[in-house]
Amino acid sequence: MTDQKKIIEIRDLHKSYQMGSTRVNVLEGANLSVRRGEFLAILGASGSGKSTLLHLLGGLDRPDQGRVLFEDQDLRDYKRGRLNRFRNRTVGFVFQFYHLIDEFNVRENVLLPAMVGKSVLAWLAGRSQPKRRADELIEQVGLEDRALHKPYQLSGGERQRVAIARALMNRPELLLADEPTGNLDSATGNSILKIFEQLNRAGQTIVMVTHDERIAQMATRAVVLVDGKTVERRVGQPS
């Protein structure tokens, strides 16, 4: 269910990268807005700039030109500390390759955003609440039996579930997923997608980069990146 209020918006975004001696223009005037409660799928060919767009939305990178507005405030005006807090509390990231900390078990990986946001003393003083939250999330993704296992002891799908639980730890307003099923077989991928579906039904705003049509069909809205610009696509319309 979507709330009509915009949560994040990009306006006339330009981004390019230097690849050796060549300058590659990835985004050339992209525009996009995301509403609360939306499940937005971003589609496009390989190398079209989908992941770049996602990273800009999440404050992981800065555009060359244009604006990224979160609740009408430009992320470029955020000082470093505020940007860190934005990444910690407002946004949750799920990556294609999970990116779990090998030295932490499942529970500790899920707790990581909470630990990052607190000093040692603050953590020691108030760790019970985050631990409860972590246990809930682990149960929600169906890994309550694997809480003490390390990432190398988990399958690809299980690792991705941990990544999702971690992304949700601090109750982010925006969940960003970069091809979360790209590395998984279809059955596992489907189970992951179901989790995203459940989250969205519960009101979580999700922006997902994908080249998978099934996800495009599942989303409430889809945009396609073409020539560095976003093009709206009606759900049901082929890309």
Binding site: G58, L60, R80, G81, N84, R85, F86, R87, N88, R89, F93, H99, L100, I101, L112, P113, V116, G117
Partner: peptide, 8 residues
């Protein structure tokens, strides 16, 4: 990973 979670 840490920086993506807001670590400075």
């Amino acid at each position: 990973i840490l920086k993506s979670m807001g670590a400075s």
